[in-house]
Structures are given as C-alpha cells and as structure tokens.
Simulated assay, not measured.
Amino acid sequence: MKSKSLLLLCCLSLFIFSCKNKSTPSSEAEEKTPQKENILQKVANAHGIENWSKIKELQYTFNVDRDSSHYERSWKWQPKENKVEMLSSTDTVSYTRTTMDSLATKADQAFINDKYWLLFPYQLVWDEGFSHSVKKDISAPISQQKLAEITIEYNNEKGYTPGDTYKIYVDKNYIIQEWAFYPKGKNEPALVSTWEDYQTLNGLKIAKMHKNESGSFKLYFSNLEIQ
C-alpha cells in the first residue's frame, strides 16, 4: 500500500452516508447469485449482473456537488484480484482487500461507499445479512410515480455501518429510479435521491447521476471505464 498524504482520509466522512459489506470480502463472494430468481435477482439481472464475470477492471471518478462545494475521488478496481487504487488531488492509496492495515481500512470505507452508489443493484445478490420486503404501487418520494418499493434492512452484525435501511423504487422493468437512505434507528430518511442518466458499458447498466429533489445535492460518476 502507498500513500502520499492522510488529508483525504480525514475528510472521508463528509460524503459517506453509509457503507455495507464484510470488512474483508472476497471477489469470489461477489460472483455468487441465488438460485431462486426473486425480486432482488430480477433487479440485479435488469442491471446486467450476468455480465459481471467478464469484468476485469473498473475505473471511475466519484463526484459530489453540494450547494457551492465540489468533492471528488477516483478509483481503479480489479475485482478478480481484489486490488484497489484510490486517487485524489492529495492522496494515492493502493491496497489488496484481502490484507488491509488500518490506513487501507479507512480508504476501503470510502471504496465501499462509492461502490454501493455505483453497483447497488448487484449488492442485492452479493450481500448477506439483510432482510427485504416489497410493496407495490407506492408513490416514489421525488417523482411521485407509482413504483415498487423494496425495503432493504441490514442487520446489526456486519459492515462498516450496520443496521441501516434503504428503500429502493423500481419500475416495471426492475430498473432503480430512486432510493432513500435511513440511518440505523431513524424513521426519516437522511437522503433521498434519483437514479438517472443510465449508461450501459460491457453489459453493466450504470446510473451515472443521483440528485435530491431540490438539486442542491448531486452525486455522479465521470471518467467511467469498464473493461
């Protein structure tokens, strides 16, 4: 692992609202899909999970615009080797996710957060340790469209921030249109945003833009390359 500075790592919490996953997950675990095609599998399929096994490398820049401020960090990830590189204007941190020291673990919290924004439809079948429920014809919080609402409630045992809940809103084709994030123990969402500006690269269907209702918060991906 290498690092130019610790400044970025002190700022990670500014834009991480949640990150779920095992602290040292394996790439093999992310290849697994359930035998039964329930609604979670249908969402993952609609976003192209069947093409994941062919992916060798992802590169992307994670951007956040909040009011007049801008923040970004870039990633290079080789999932089959579990190798990750984080780059910013102040830092470069490289590590292998199977063997992480304290500095790599801090960077990995940011990686998991950004990866969830990028690949949440796949986390629905990669992850363990959560329950889900479905309601049909629910008014989505931003568009008010009638969509299926899937509630994802993580348990209190695993991940960097256990016990959080997500509600995702999917259309008839099982494509995510909006989501809401509820921190552990909260009945009101901390953030509600769109999923839009979809692009398909090497079979993966990725939402590149997420905005809140007022547009004062925008989280988006640029420099997206999938090989």
Results as ranks from 00 to 15, higher is better:
Lys83Phe: 07
Ala180Phe: 05
Leu118Gly: 08
Gln144Leu: 04
Asp114Phe: 02
Asp171Thr: 10
Leu124Val: 08
Gln144Met: 01
Thr161Ala: 06
Lys136Glu: 15
Gln109Ile: 11
Tyr166Arg: 08
Lys83Glu: 09
Lys76Met: 08
Trp126Asn: 06
Tyr154Asp: 05
Thr90Met: 00
Glu81His: 01
Ile168Phe: 11
Ser139Phe: 14
Ala180Tyr: 13
Met86Gly: 01
Val125Glu: 02
Gly129Pro: 05
Tyr166Ala: 05
Ser131Ile: 13
Arg97Cys: 13
Pro162Ser: 15
Tyr95Gly: 07
Glu178Ala: 13
Ser94Phe: 03
Val84Gly: 04
Leu124Ile: 03
Ala148Leu: 04
Ser74Met: 08
Tyr160Phe: 14
Thr96Gly: 12
Pro183Trp: 12
Asp101Val: 02
Gly163His: 03
Ser139Val: 00
Phe130Asn: 05
Asn155Phe: 07
Gln177Gly: 12
Thr92Gln: 09
Thr90Cys: 00
Lys167His: 15
Ile176Gln: 14
Ser94Trp: 01
Lys83Thr: 08
Ala140Tyr: 03
Asp91Ser: 15
Glu72Tyr: 12
Glu72Lys: 12
Ala148Gln: 04
Asp137Phe: 09
Ser131Phe: 13
Pro79Cys: 04
Gly159Thr: 11
Tyr169Phe: 15
Ser143Tyr: 00
Trp179Asn: 14
Phe181Ser: 05
Pro183Tyr: 12
Pro162Trp: 14
Asp127Tyr: 02
Tyr154Trp: 09
Val84Trp: 14
Glu81Asn: 14
Tyr122Ala: 10
Tyr160Gln: 08
Lys80Glu: 02
